[in-house]
Design a protein around this nucleic acid. Structure first.
Length: 412
DNA sequence: CGTCCACAGGAATGACGGGCGG
DNA sequence: CCGCCCGTCATTCCTGTGGACG
């Protein structure tokens, strides 16, 4: 009964509240605002590239790249939306298709989305990929249409070795009868170009648009623009806004992070019953976002990586210098046998250590002790209290933490 | 200046599981 | 439903290596 009351309280506060947020959705990353501060140049550039499509001329393929949260997707969607409106008004035979490669997942589903954009019905599984491509070309020819295809997070395809589709798409115009397909590729990963097939790359990057990270001042403008409609008037102090911008600028000028920071700060203030977002809420939000990242990463880690982390956690608490591979492996096998799990080989553990390093859960560094060998120094990359919190909830691994505590007691 | 430690990390190969086409 | 293929995880075997020590 009492818990029911508490839940009601939460709901009531949420409904009556509205002390902070006016429209929370404005801060989501998939929201496309009417104004994109500091991206006027990029918008014009892209509009110039795409404009010929309105009178039926083939557009150059374009390649857009820049780090996450630099406005690539927002600018692309913004320009494409305008283009679509204009084309509809003029009755131009132009279709526009936006696909996020990572969300689509496979070649098949990307092609299925392409077909859907032309109202070609395809089963969601069963056909060969080449069959889908044929149907797509056929329909384009049949309707005598031009299409602009935007492939967001295109690096995902290459990393999964599914770049054959890209190759096919760059050659697609050879099979069309006068009509054409224009490609816009968007990538977060700057190094991705190196992995791309040279023919595909040269075809794709007829035009290149580069997005630089935002500066703190630019982030401030973006945030204040959004904050106007996101929050109730007076709910946000200017200093808090500046703080959000500064924090996000420190981390690669990522607007997405900045918006997250602002939203979480708002939520924290709301939960506290405050009707103003203060600097301390922003600071808490920074910590919370960081912690949540670790918690998420830790929760879904495979068993052996969890065991390894517990090993590092243990050795870290014994010695501030961090551990080395040999000692860690010894402890790891001990922990494994204590819960009747077959330990992996040292070679494999070494690989897992590297994976954990990439995930940012560990910091490893190869060092040489000369006469006494060459090894890796391993340190925890996560606050140790988070390891203890998250992994002690784990049934199997949780018991290891107790075991580990006993060991520590015994040794010393 | 060569040796040799204690591993790093590449290559080849095997075990397993899941989806696809027939 | 079955065989087939493919991707992932793990093992085995291997060669490579920075630098203190003798």
């Amino acid at each position: 009964m009492s818990s029911g009351n508490r839940v009601d309280e939460i709901f009531d506060r949420f409904l009556s509240g509205g002390k902070i947020f006016n429209n929370r959705d404005v801060l989501r990353h998939d929201y496309i605002p009417d104004k994109l501060p500091h991206r006027a140049e990029h918008i014009q550039r892209l509009a110039n590239i795409l404009a010929p499509s309105l009178n039926g001329s083939k557009v150059s393929n374009a390649f857009i790249y820049g780090k996450t949260g630099t406005g690539k997707t927002a600018v692309a969607k913004y320009v494409l939306n305008r283009l679509k409106e204009k084309a509809n008004a003029l009755g131009a035979p132009l279709k526009i298709c936006y696909i996020n490669c990572r969300l689509a997942g496979t070649n098949y589903r990307i092609l299925a989305d392409l077909c859907k954009s032309l109202e070609v019905d395809v089963p969601f599984t069963g056909l060969a990929v080449s069959e889908l491509l044929d149907r797509y070309k056929e329909k384009l020819n049949l309707l005598n249409l031009n299409e602009i295809v935007t492939l967001d997070e295109i690096d995902f395809l290459v990393k999964r070795n599914e770049d054959s589709l890209l190759y096919e798409l760059t050659r697609i115009n050879e099979f069309l009868r006068g009509n054409w397909v224009g490609l816009i590729g968007i990538s977060n990963d700057l190094r991705f170009k190196e992995y791309l097939d040279a023919r595909v790359l040269s075809c794709l990057s007829e035009e290149e648009v580069i997005f630089k990270p935002y500066s703190a001042d630019e982030l401030y403008d973006i945030l204040s623009e959004r904050a106007k409609s996101a929050f109730i008037e007076g709910a946000l102090q200017d200093s808090s806004l500046k703080l959000c911008a500064a924090y996000a600028a420190r981390e690669h000028g990522d607007a997405r992070r900045a918006l997250d920071l602002l939203r979480v700060a708002g939520e924290l203030a709301e939960r506290e019953g405050s009707n103003t977002i203060l600097d301390k809420h922003v600071k808490e939000a920074l910590q919370k976002i960081e912690d949540d990242r670790f918690v998420e990463a830790l929760k879904y880690l495979p068993l052996h990586q969890k065991i390894i982390l517990i090993g590092v956690y243990h050795l870290d608490s014994l010695c501030a210098e961090g551990s080395i591979t040999g000692d860690l492996y010894e402890l790891y096998t001990e922990l494994c046998t204590s819960i009747f799990v077959e330990p992996l080989t040292q070679r494999r553990v070494s690989g897992l250590l590297n994976e954990l390093d990439i995930l940012g859960l560990l910091n490893t560094r190869v060092v040489s002790f000369g006469r006494y060998g060459r090894t890796k120094k391993i340190k925890l990359g996560v606050p140790s209290k988070i390891i203890a919190e998250v992994l002690s909830d784990d049934d199997v691994v949780g018991s290891l933490l107790k075991h580990e505590a006993k060991l520590k007691h015994k040794r010393g």
